[in-house]
Design a protein around this nucleic acid. Sequence first.
DNA 1: TTGCATGCAAATTTTTTGCAGCCAG
DNA 2: CTGGCTGCAAAAAATTTGCATGCAA
Lengths: 139, 139
Amino acid sequence: MNKEELKNLINEAGLRVTLHRLRVLSAVAKAKKPITVYELTELLRKKENIDQATIYRNLSSLHLAGILRRSDLNHGHSHYELETGKATHQIICNKCEIIERIEGVSTDNAILKMVQKSKKFKNVITHSVEIFGVCKSCN
Amino acid sequence: MNKEELKNLINEAGLRVTLHRLRVLSAVAKAKKPITVYELTELLRKKENIDQATIYRNLSSLHLAGILRRSDLNHGHSHYELETGKATHQIICNKCEIIERIEGVSTDNAILKMVQKSKKFKNVITHSVEIFGVCKSCN
DNA sequence: TTGCATGCAAATTTTTTGCAGCCAG
DNA sequence: CTGGCTGCAAAAAATTTGCATGCAA
């Protein structure tokens, strides 16, 4: 996704297209994997001089706008990635926290059934399948 | 699960059966849903005078021992519950954080396929399906 | 007796907030 | 111009750690 497309995403969400917001979003998009706030801070605060509060606030507004997906992976801090609208299927190492994405296996039917069974929810936004284990390298 | 069974769990994991460890585990078991550290602290520190460090250390050791399952639900803090060995399927409200468990729909086949596709993992420990939305009450 | 477990206090890590000034629309 | 955005600093929330003492096995 290029700068122009990212700008449009922000714009269409009704948010202001500021330099910093665009930089935060670009950095997440460029990562092509769930990136931690710490990693973003390394990239943006140090190299582009963006305050950490601004990073957090932008991650939050972009998340609320449905542009970013947030996921906590049982390691005490959150990860952000572009919201594709599709489910994410990932395997996470409990030791080194490496994340492997798995494509090509759908769980949509099962999810649909679950939502139909639900008493408290009528429709849902998204879902993720998180598989936990210990990776070959750590073993 | 009664006290005796919980004791056995701890024992078989090779951990010492201390009064506090048993109380922490009992409180989680009694909750019958993923409980936050904050809720546990309310129960245990105030009523039974257990230090928060002890609560955290016990949650951690019980988790490492495979007795407790930890899950972060994108709200910035973790939840603990008894590890059943079975996958958890839950729908979480992005606003009020209410959790609804869904039983009776299996995703095991899909998970198996995913692990087979994986390059970095040979076998895995557990998995969870988390569906996010906004519940009827919040809507 | 021996080493894991605990309390206490302090430190770390992660995230949020108040407020004055700045800038996109 | 005006309200959202930002930096700065401080606070709050979540979790971890050091060390002396306690207690399970």
